[in-house]
Design a protein around this nucleic acid. Structure first.
Lengths: 191, 191
DNA sequence: GTCTATAATAGGATAGAC
DNA sequence: GTCTATCCTATTATAGAC
């Protein structure tokens, strides 16, 4: 009834919360309507093509949010160790210590697994690139940095799965805590 | 029409294939019917409680399959290195080199995330236990073995997510290949 | 820009014949 | 043990008033 109680951005954020929780297939329009407080018709006003439009908007929003809070800080000047610690803090907050699932992981599975692949791959790629750049700044050989960055992202995604399955956020917290040291370890000593 | 073309086990295997591909929410009865070649009513004959029954059967089947092909070999006598290499081969086959998603990961996400948690946690736990036992046999201190085993499972699950998102099975293959050496590395040298 | 109402379709589940 | 037919509900999507 009242004119635009929520900004588009707020709507998208609430959609993201629902999708990361229920997944693409599990997030019905009724659920998305409830999550945003908007009627179905209002959702179609914002996103004419329905759920797919909503997910695309969620991924666009997520991409710029991560660019701002995660990727840019990783590429910034300053002690590399601090940049990595900041990444860890940001992730810990974003995933609420391992309580929240990953939007990306959710969209890679189920019937949506190919539908948003370009956007998903792009986000993962930016993350890995930014992380690898930080590691190079930290003295890790370029040939090793990319592999380590990939491994870090792999472990974050995997830890969220295990934390969910075991109902134990320790799987996420412990892995996250070790990351900075492991990522910056001198070459021969790593494994 | 003809009497029992497929054994129950074969039916369950086909259900698993569908669920690992479409997830719990994405695997409709129509899809499961198509995947098994059985009409919906036939599925309800095997699984009176519907989809949940099917998933429980899939997880039971998976558990005994993994016990036989993965956990038991990890606990068996013989060179630890060989046991780990065998695990890697088994996993590479099971996930078709990274092309197939993980049933467990799929069921941890979406609306099924809590519904089968006991079974999911039990399977992950058995895997981690068997792997940790092998590492102890291989001279890894018991205090470290569990953490390394957890990390290995985390990385396998994470690698499958990345491989799917990036449409690049290398994320799975590369990680898998390094596992045995990393798991058995002498203490101080690991990260 | 939001709502209520409604249509069309897909999903889960069951009945009953063979 | 399998099928066809059917039922009910949920889901997606649209129309049209305000």
């Amino acid at each position: 009834m009242p004119p635009a109680a929520l900004s588009r951005e707020q709507v998208v954020e609430r959609l993201m919360r629902a999708i990361r929780r229920f997944g693409y297939d599990g997030a019905s329009l009724a659920e998305l309507s409830k999550a945003t407080g908007l009627g179905k018709s209002s959702l179609y006003h914002y996103f004419p093509a329905g759920k797919d439009d909503m997910v695309r908007a969620v991924l666009e929003h997520l991409e710029s949010e991560l660019e701002e809070t995660l990727f840019a800080p990783l590429r910034a000047r300053g002690p590399v160790r601090d940049r990595l610690e900041r990444m860890v803090e940001t992730l810990d907050e974003f995933y609420r210590g391992g309580r929240e699932a990953c939007v990306l992981g959710n969209l890679v599975l189920g019937t949506s697994r190919t539908r948003f692949r370009r956007q998903l791959a792009s986000i993962f790629d930016q993350w890995i690139d930014a992380l690898a750049a930080a590691l190079v700044d930290g003295g890790v050989p370029a040939s090793v940095a990319r592999a380590r960055a990939e491994d870090a992202v792999v472990r974050i995604e995997g830890a969220l799965i295990l934390a969910g399955a075991m109902n134990d956020i320790g799987y996420f917290g412990r892995g996250l805590k070790q990351l900075p040291s492991e990522l910056l370890a001198p070459e021969p000593s790593r494994r």
